[in-house]
């Protein structure tokens, strides 16, 4: 009986992140031991501690397990099409430059079907934060091979082991021009939160890869145990190496995962470059879009 009373008290107190979530949509769809929820908690904590104007914050997701993040966040939230979260976010940012726009999606969405948009947004230094949760597999559709599946790992479409070389995503982002590149796992709660806060304070194309467990598919297909076993693996097999050469941070199957902040530099964003170019060439004739957007009203 005492247990029941305790629960009632617990319910009376709101969870600290509740104001940032659409509590009327909870429970979420993610499996037990999935890492995505932890990443969301870290992001919410970073938002809170950074004191960003939440009314001016938009979140965009593509399709997939991580693609559901936008749907649970109590922000202007856009659940777009598969692979197109980055160009959708580009439109939001350019349509109303004062917005803080974050893309939250998975490895398949952002680096598979959306890979072309990823590299071009990095090249342009589009002023968006991209959070990519990498679970090495297509989760929502049932464990198919991803552009991130390590060599040798099994997936439902590579039942005899993956023989395609995967992307080294921090290296891809860095070589394409991202100004902030970091990688953490969902075990690194404090460091990930700190990294989110840092990235929120920067301008330009910021990329954070978060390695997260998919026990339902990736661990099961590869006989890696439970979610707990994967977290144990992150604990034992990650090395924090800030400033590492991104050429060296590729991920081999069940091998060391190098985490840390790899890139943190400042370069003019797409909009900075555009304004400079037009001011230089057009002078007083240049009329930039207002910060609040190109909305025409009476």
């Amino acid at each position: 009986m005492s247990e029941v009373i305790e629960r009632a008290e617990a319910l009376a107190e709101e969870h600290p992140v509740a104001p940032y979530l659409r509590m009327d949509r909870i429970p979420h769809i993610w499996c037990p031991t999935c890492g995505i929820g932890t990443v969301v908690k870290c992001f919410v904590t970073a938002l809170e501690e950074s004191k960003v104007d939440l009314d001016k914050t938009s979140i965009v997701s593509g399709i997939g397990c991580t693609g559901r993040v936008a749907g649970y966040m109590n922000l202007d939230a856009f659940h777009s099409t598969h692979g197109r979260a980055i160009p959708f976010a580009t439109g939001l940012k350019l349509g109303r430059p004062e917005l803080f726009v974050t893309v939250f999606s998975g490895d398949g969405d952002l680096s598979g079907i959306g890979g072309n948009h990823f590299i071009h947004a990095a090249r342009r230094n589009m002023d968006i934060l991209v959070v990519l949760v990498n679970n090495f597999i297509y989760g929502m559709t049932g464990g198919q091979n991803a552009p991130t599946t390590p060599l040798g790992a099994k997936s439902s479409t590579m039942p005899f082991g993956n023989f395609e070389r995967p992307f080294n995503l921090p290296h891809l982002a860095a070589t394409c021009g991202a100004v902030y590149v970091a990688r953490w796992t969902s075990l690194h709660i404090r460091r990930l939160t700190k990294s989110f806060k840092e990235a929120i304070g920067r301008k330009g194309f910021r990329f954070i890869e978060v390695i997260a467990p998919c026990s339902t598919l990736y661990a099961r297909l590869n006989k890696l145990g439970t979610g707990f076993n994967l977290m144990q693996f992150y604990h034992d097999s990650t090395e924090i190496r800030h400033g590492a050469d991104t050429r060296d941070v590729g991920i081999d199957y069940q091998d060391e995962i190098i985490c840390g902040k790899f890139v943190d530099e400042q370069r003019p964003t797409f909009l900075d470059m555009m304004h400079d170019q037009y001011r230089r060439t057009l002078g007083d004739k240049y009329v930039p879009m207002p910060q609040e957007g190109g909305h025409i009203h009476e």
Binding site: F78, R84, L92, L94, G95, N116, H117, H120, G293, G294
Partner: peptide, 23 residues
Amino acid sequence: TFVQMEDELASMAAVVGASWTGT
């Protein structure tokens, strides 16, 4: 603001995104 996107998939997605700002 005009932006030349990487393909037409991106162009259309960006147009939908931008329209949600009222622009």
